[in-house]
Write a protein that binds this DNA or RNA. Sequence first.
DNA 1: GCCCTATATCTCAGTGATGAGATTCTTACC
DNA 2: GGTAAGAATCTCATCACTGAGATATAGGGC
Lengths: 169, 169
Amino acid sequence: MKTAPTTSRTRKSAPAPAPGDRKQETALKLWVVLARAFDSVAKNVEADVAEYDLTGTEFGILEALYHKGPMLLGEIQRKILVTSGGITYLVDRLVAKGFVKREQCAEDRRARYAVLTPSGQALIRKIFPVHAARIEQSLSGLTMAEQREATALLRKLGLAAAELSAERE
Amino acid sequence: MKTAPTTSRTRKSAPAPAPGDRKQETALKLWVVLARAFDSVAKNVEADVAEYDLTGTEFGILEALYHKGPMLLGEIQRKILVTSGGITYLVDRLVAKGFVKREQCAEDRRARYAVLTPSGQALIRKIFPVHAARIEQSLSGLTMAEQREATALLRKLGLAAAELSAERE
DNA sequence: GCCCTATATCTCAGTGATGAGATTCTTACC
DNA sequence: GGTAAGAATCTCATCACTGAGATATAGGGC
């Protein structure tokens, strides 16, 4: 998803650039470019991992397990931002492909670990560097300094927005 | 959504912070916060329009028509970034809900216009201001100056990434 | 005019999820 | 030690699209 916003006030005669509306216009413009930037990068990333028959989300799970070792399904779920049904579905598929297996959790019998199989290890070890290079290339429109700046801004933005949606619950 | 990247090198002993890897690390971090920021804002926006039984994408179409007047399906498609099948599906649904109608294009008999019905006009006129305020609020983690800065950076980033994926074709 | 390529839209089977509810287990607190 | 509230996972119906191919029309070169 991607939810592409469209807002663009391009009508002939704007009904007088209302006073407090500068703020809205600035915000709407940011929302548009945020969505487009995300979409463009995401498309690059997905095209990349698709070569190994993985979705971006599946790749995210393998990557998380690669960097963090075995994780509880719930941990992964929170990390990659999918629903409870989603994590079951995704892990099922990675199991079917032979890259991951489920393991009992000794301390909590409701929970299960996802663990990379040797085949999953081998795969992610092989493709992670390629993938990282692809992302670096995708973002190379910005210098490193600009990337750091963008990261700081987006982190601040994301945290505030996440807080807002937490309030909704 | 949404493709949440996860990269986070948190293993005990990092295998020596390799030389050219600073760039990759910077890029990966940006990709993570970009995806998360997008996701948080998108969730706010979608929760908002869901109150009117619209998806974010459907809203995008209504909004585009509201600001630009009648548009060819193909124009809308490029603007909101969906596939050809998607635009047919989405316009079908908006037609079923009574917000939009299709109209012949005199100059090109393959093409059709999407046009807001009075009911669609009334709806979007009513909810657009609420929606814009919601976005403003969602992004209010950044000051206006920061928002402008972020917009400039993301625009640059998005254009470069889009060019890259265009090359892939 | 005729052909060939390109473009606009539509059809439809398939996909990658979501989300509500069911199940199983845990943890306080009485 | 029983019980109620909460948490971790799973099930399954449903959804919002995608993408490949079909159909109809356009338009340029000959």
